[in-house]
């Protein structure tokens, strides 16, 4: 596990790609701050969402958990370790400077209710029983192979982890069908993860045409903005708080249920909106609207409400 912010992650992008392709579990906390480059290092943003989702060269994509509170930072840290080992891949926990460096009130953290998940790790006894193993073979149909840990006392335990093309036995290979097979398995593993990640938090409002979609610390401004919209404008909006990437199917259903969905986020380029667009049904893409806040200060309810009201007026 390592905790850093945007510059550290940019610096280590090559290693993250290696982790993805060699299937090494790792947990990375990103306390997002304002970029690009050194940007405003003492100010907050949600500017690393798109970069981390696809970090490193080649076809890479990564699991992300997105906490909105200190309680969730704690529970998602526990979850991130389980997921990293279960899926044998890097997992990002996307905090931000507002959450990571300011004082927050909290009810207290809940003790983990489940034992740690260590994933598919074979012991020397397992190898005796199986007679060997293929590191990158999809035995269970979920895209996740079995691994052994260094130091396992068995002549069949060792393998060479490499960032270059490798076959199911972890041996170097440049064969086109081997490369494609491996990349497709990684994509399948990513799909398996989609339904295992923290579900979005959805508040449906009956018959609402307007939906609001947000993530991370933007949540707190949305809670208040929803009140303002209701009291000041008589608009009752639905709300979806995305808590992970890859995005749960429930989020796409939420978008489908609303005429207009305002994606509120703290960056200039509508990064979450871009991720949603990559996967949403083409027919639903037109429902997505954008509300952006990127001046380095935590987003406030008034800015969100005003932006939504202004865009609604143009409908």
């Amino acid at each position: 596990m390592t905790a850093t912010s945007g510059p550290g992650i940019s610096l280590m992008a090559e290693f993250v790609g290696l982790g993805y392709y060699t299937e090494v579990p790792v947990v990375i906390f990103d306390v997002e701050r304002v970029g690009p480059s050194t940007g405003l290092p003492t100010r907050t943003a949600q500017g690393d969402i798109l970069k981390n989702a696809l970090l490193s060269h080649g076809d890479t994509k990564h699991l992300m958990l997105i906490p909105c509170s200190t309680e969730e930072c704690f529970s998602m840290a526990v979850e991130a370790f389980d997921l990293a080992e279960e899926f044998q891949t890097p997992v990002f926990v996307m905090s931000d400077l507002d959450l990571g460096m300011n004082n927050w009130m909290a009810d207290g953290f809940d003790y983990p209710s489940k034992p740690m998940a260590r994933g598919k790790v074979l012991s020397a006894e397992d190898l005796d029983r199986l007679g060997g193993f293929d590191r990158y073979k999809d035995v269970d149909g979920d895209g996740i192979g079995y691994r052994t840990l260094p130091g396992t006392k068995h002549p069949k335990a060792g393998f060479l982890t490499r960032g270059s093309g490798h076959n199911e036995q972890a041996i170097y290979s440049e064969r086109p069908e081997v490369y494609v097979g491996n990349m497709d398995r990684l994509a399948h593993k990513f799909e398996t993860a989609r339904s295992r990640l923290p579900k979005p938090e959805i508040q449906d409002a009956k018959g609402a045409e307007v939906g609001v979609l947000a993530y991370g610390t933007t949540h707190w401004a949305i809670v208040e903005a929803l009140d303002q919209l209701r009291k000041e404008q008589g608009v009752t909006a639905g709300y979806c708080r995305v808590r992970a990437f890859p995005i749960s199917l429930e989020v796409f259903d939420f978008i489908h249920r609303h005429r207009r969905v305002y994606v509120v986020e703290q960056n200039r380029d509508a990064q979450m909106l871009s991720l949603l667009r990559m996967e949403v049904d083409a027919a639903d893409a037109g429902r997505l609207r954008s509300v952006l806040h990127y001046n380095g200060l935590p987003v406030d309810a008034r800015s969100v409400t005003d932006a939504i009201v202004a865009q609604e007026a143009r409908n």
Binding site: F15, G151, P155, G158, L160, T161, G163, Y172
Partner: peptide, 18 residues
């Protein structure tokens, strides 16, 4: 070259210089 000795050992081919 680690691929060319100690076949039964674990190995890790990292990124350049690291």
């Amino acid at each position: 070259s680690p691929a060319y000795f100690l076949r039964a050992s674990h190995g890790f081919n990292a990124v350049h210089g690291r």
